[in-house]
Simulated scan of single mutants.
Amino acid sequence: MTVLQLAPLNRLRQIVLVRYILASVGALAVDMGTFLALLSAGVPPVAASAMGYGIGIMVHWILSSRKVFADQVAESGMARTRQKAMFVVSALIGLGVTTLIVGGASAAGLDPRIAKLCAIVVSFTVTWLLRKRVVFR
């Protein structure tokens, strides 16, 4: 590739939302893979959803703190601990949203996989806003 061909790609990498979406896709792959594997193993949908989300969020912290908001991550000490705690709180809010949607939809007789897809959209929006405006501001 020439330098001119790489320029648009480099500009995209500089956009925080694009990096966040890519990190989210990676974490989502881990989340959904875990969720589907646990469902196949007979784990109840709400528990499978929560476990998948929990593992996915660990992946998301690694990607977010190193690739998305790297220039906004606190150096060390209490500031870093506070930021990690806020990230965990945002994850717990997202987890609550996810489990409520999957649990409510499953109780209503809907396919838990469809419910999980709906939960992904809502949870993504909520956690993006929290992380952009609170955790990594």
Rank of each mutant, 00 (worst) to 15 (best):
Q5G: 10
K67H: 07
S40T: 05
L22V: 14
R13M: 06
Q72Y: 08
L4K: 09
R133V: 13
T127S: 05
V97A: 14
A115D: 01
V73K: 04
G103D: 07
K132Q: 12
D111E: 08
L92F: 10
A91D: 00
L4D: 14
V3Q: 14
G26V: 01
I57A: 03
A74K: 01
L28W: 14
F136I: 05
T99S: 08
G33Y: 12
L63H: 04
G77Q: 06
L110N: 14
Q5D: 10
A91Y: 00
A29E: 06
G54C: 13
S24W: 03
R131A: 11
V18D: 04
A23L: 10
V3L: 14
L130H: 05
V16T: 13
V30M: 09
L22Q: 09
A23N: 05
V73L: 05
T99C: 10
F69Y: 11
L92Y: 12
L129A: 15
G109A: 08
I93V: 14
A85G: 13
G109Y: 09
Y20A: 10
A91S: 15
D31F: 10
T34P: 09
L28S: 10
F69R: 00
M86Y: 12
A23G: 10
V73E: 02
K84M: 06
R13Y: 02
T34G: 12
A91V: 10
V43Y: 00
S40H: 15
K67I: 09
A85L: 14
L110E: 06
I93Q: 11
C118E: 10
D31H: 15
P45G: 07
V46L: 04
R66T: 15
G103W: 15
G56K: 01
P44H: 04
V102Y: 04
G56P: 08
V68E: 02
A91N: 04
A37G: 12
S24E: 08
R131Y: 08
A41P: 03
I21G: 01
M78Q: 13
S49R: 03
Q5L: 09
G54K: 09
I55M: 12
R80K: 15
G96R: 12
P8S: 05
A50S: 14
T98R: 01
G54R: 09
L17H: 06
D31K: 08
G103Q: 10
A48G: 06
I62L: 11
L130R: 09
L63K: 03
H60S: 12
V102C: 12
Y53N: 02
A29M: 15
Q14T: 13
S123M: 02
G56F: 01
L100I: 07
S90G: 15
G52I: 04
V25D: 03
S64Q: 13
A23H: 07
D31T: 15
V135N: 03
L63E: 08
T81G: 08
I15L: 07
N10A: 09
G109E: 09
Y20S: 12
G54Y: 13
Q72W: 04
V88S: 06
S24T: 14
I120E: 01
G77F: 01
A108E: 07
G104Q: 13
Q72K: 04
R113D: 00
F136V: 11
F87V: 02
I114E: 03
M78V: 02
V126W: 06
G26P: 10
G103I: 14
V102S: 03
V135M: 07
T2S: 10
K132T: 11
F124I: 06
I62W: 12
T34V: 15
Q14V: 03
